[in-house]
Simulated assay, not measured.
Amino acid sequence: MEAATSTSASVAMDMKHPWMVAEPWFMVTILGLYMYFVTSVGPLFMQFRKPYELKKLIIGHNVMQVLSCIYVLREVFYLSDNSIWMFWKCRDLGSSPEMVKRYFQLSYFLFWVKMSELLETVIFVLRKKQNQVSNLHIFHHFSTLTLIYMLIHYNQNGVAAYYVVFLNSVVHIIMYSYYLVTAVADKKVIRALTPIKKSITVIQMMQFCLILTQVGFQTVICGISKVVLVYFTFVITVMLYGFYDFYTRAYQSPPKGKGHASVE
């Protein structure tokens, strides 16, 4: 077990990564600009402007996200030999050049997918939907990008770490497909599909519960770096609480107004 862990860690450390993910500075710069725009300069820019429609951009973004998640699932199934759902198993990355190459190619791809998801908050700002730029929404996008960076550099559990990616991709296919339909459908269809929003939030909470379950198994059976364990568990716990809080306010409390934020 310890040998498997050290093999995965040493392979990751020996890799020469593209410059944009080799060091954290590019990610930190992008996240800094993101925070500055969505919380300060963006709302100020839109203060006396009419909201942009951006329908084509929204449709294109949703299509890209669905297709990206389908590709990610294909790669995860390949890397795990179609058994990624067995989350309790320790899965060393190994030393096969093909496996190592595809493992890191997928992690780089995920980095750019999570980077592209930052566009959603920008779209909210440009459409003057600042109420949807919640603390949970920003935390979600901020933290997921940092987790992918950790997947590239600090993963000691090999392919097992892609169980989280597997769950997230399934959830995102459902979620972005819903967003895509609502972006092109008429108001009658959108009203008919409204209950699906509640189901998506429930699915998201179930995802976080399954992730925390895997963390428990992986910690006991396989071992996880303490720093990674603490940060990862913190992020997932905050997300679970945030989505639960959103769920109770949006669907179980008496409605206080028309709109509520979509939180991913």
Rank of each mutant, 00 (worst) to 15 (best):
residue 198 K to L: 10
residue 7 T to M: 09
residue 162 Y to E: 01
residue 186 D to N: 14
residue 238 V to C: 14
residue 69 C to L: 05
residue 192 A to V: 05
residue 233 T to H: 03
residue 226 K to L: 09
residue 196 I to Q: 01
residue 72 V to N: 00
residue 193 L to R: 07
residue 4 A to R: 04
residue 75 E to P: 01
residue 13 M to F: 15
residue 9 A to S: 07
residue 216 G to H: 08
residue 200 I to H: 10
residue 87 F to D: 06
residue 38 V to P: 00
residue 15 M to L: 12
residue 7 T to V: 13
residue 10 S to V: 01
residue 112 W to K: 13
residue 70 I to N: 13
residue 254 P to S: 02
residue 144 T to E: 11
residue 113 V to P: 00
residue 119 L to G: 02
residue 209 C to Y: 02
residue 80 S to M: 09
residue 168 N to K: 13
residue 56 K to W: 09
residue 18 P to L: 13
residue 120 E to N: 13
residue 147 L to A: 04
residue 75 E to Q: 09
residue 218 Q to V: 14
residue 232 F to N: 02
residue 31 L to E: 12
residue 21 V to M: 14
residue 140 H to A: 02
residue 62 N to F: 06
residue 264 E to Y: 14
residue 152 I to W: 04
residue 45 F to C: 05
residue 100 V to Q: 06
residue 14 D to G: 09
residue 247 Y to D: 07
residue 251 Y to N: 05
residue 84 I to Y: 09
residue 8 S to C: 12
residue 44 L to W: 15
residue 222 C to R: 07
residue 20 M to G: 06
residue 137 H to I: 00
residue 175 M to V: 12
residue 8 S to H: 05
residue 22 A to H: 11
residue 163 Y to C: 05
residue 182 T to H: 07
residue 211 I to W: 06
residue 224 I to S: 02
residue 43 P to Q: 11
residue 36 Y to Q: 14
residue 22 A to Q: 12
residue 61 H to V: 00
residue 201 T to A: 15
residue 140 H to Q: 10
residue 239 M to G: 03
residue 189 V to C: 13
residue 258 K to C: 05
residue 3 A to S: 15
residue 28 V to Q: 15
residue 47 Q to M: 09
residue 157 N to M: 07
residue 71 Y to P: 02
residue 188 K to F: 04
residue 197 K to Y: 03
residue 113 V to Q: 10
residue 56 K to F: 15
residue 11 V to T: 11
residue 130 Q to H: 03
residue 195 P to V: 04
residue 237 T to D: 05
residue 200 I to W: 04
residue 262 S to A: 11
residue 155 N to D: 08
residue 64 M to K: 10
residue 246 F to H: 14
residue 102 R to G: 03
residue 209 C to F: 14
residue 263 V to I: 13
residue 68 S to P: 02
residue 90 C to R: 07
residue 202 V to F: 09
residue 100 V to R: 10
residue 74 R to S: 12
residue 80 S to R: 07
residue 155 N to S: 12
residue 34 Y to H: 00
residue 40 S to F: 14
residue 101 K to W: 08
residue 29 T to H: 14
residue 213 T to S: 11
residue 6 S to H: 14
residue 238 V to M: 11
residue 3 A to F: 05
residue 131 N to F: 13
residue 106 L to N: 02
residue 136 L to P: 02
residue 77 F to G: 01
residue 165 V to C: 07
residue 15 M to Y: 04
residue 176 Y to Q: 07
residue 204 Q to N: 09
residue 264 E to F: 13
residue 246 F to L: 08
residue 24 P to C: 06
residue 96 S to E: 14
residue 169 S to W: 04
residue 220 V to P: 00
residue 100 V to E: 01
residue 241 Y to K: 07
residue 59 I to G: 11
residue 46 M to F: 02
